[in-house]
């Protein structure tokens, strides 16, 4: 957990997405399915919680963009003892270790899979906003009921995204 990228992943995926945002979305979806949902809670979620996705999505995107570099054995050359290698070694060994690692593990596929899952979640979010006529503050019961399948789709996409990010390696795999 000392690796800064692992810490970022833990805060974004485990703490925020899995144990915070997703639970909020799931609770909202189940509330929508009730006969007479509490309007105040519905409103609270739509105004305060739901739009947080907009702020966090770029952070998730950046996390995934940094994943390959952060998880590669090449990153070991930034720290002692390998940072003490001389220029003759640094000319070839970091890139060789990186390429061997890519050959051993389907890391690129895993990251691309996570990025696709993020795109799907973002698209699902945008469908909801469009469905609510561009405003996440809309609490019109009829419109909300119409959007229920979209919220379910969003929830499903978030679960897939969280699982994909969790599946990325927990440490730099050197062998």
């Amino acid at each position: 957990m000392n690796n800064p990228w692992q810490r970022r992943r833990s805060v974004l995926n485990h703490d925020w997405l899995k144990n915070g945002y997703m639970k909020g979305v799931d609770a909202f979806v189940s509330r929508l399915g009730r006969q007479s949902p509490v309007q105040l809670r519905i409103q609270e979620f739509l105004i305060s919680d739901f739009p947080v996705w907009r702020r966090r999505q770029p952070k998730l995107q950046a996390l995934l963009a940094d994943a390959v570099d952060a998880l590669s054995p090449r990153s070991l050359f930034d720290l002692p003892p390998l940072s003490l290698c001389g220029p003759e070694t640094l000319a070839w060994l970091p890139n060789l270790a990186h390429s061997l690692w890519l050959a051993r593990y389907p890391i690129k596929e895993q990251v691309e899979n996570s990025q696709r899952a993020l795109k799907r979640a973002d698209a699902a979010y945008n469908h909801i906003v469009k469905g609510l006529n561009g405003s996440t503050a809309s609490t019109d019961p009829t419109r909300l009921r119409e959007c229920e399948p979209l919220f379910r789709e969003f929830s499903k996409a978030l679960h897939a995204l969280s699982a994909a990010i969790s599946a990325l390696p927990k440490k730099v795999m050197v062998v």
Partner: peptide, 15 residues
């Protein structure tokens, strides 16, 4: 800290 570094150096040595 040291075992992974040793592994990387062994990889380079063998290649």
């Amino acid at each position: 800290d040291v075992l992974p570094s040793l592994a990387v150096l062994c990889q380079g040595y063998l290649i």
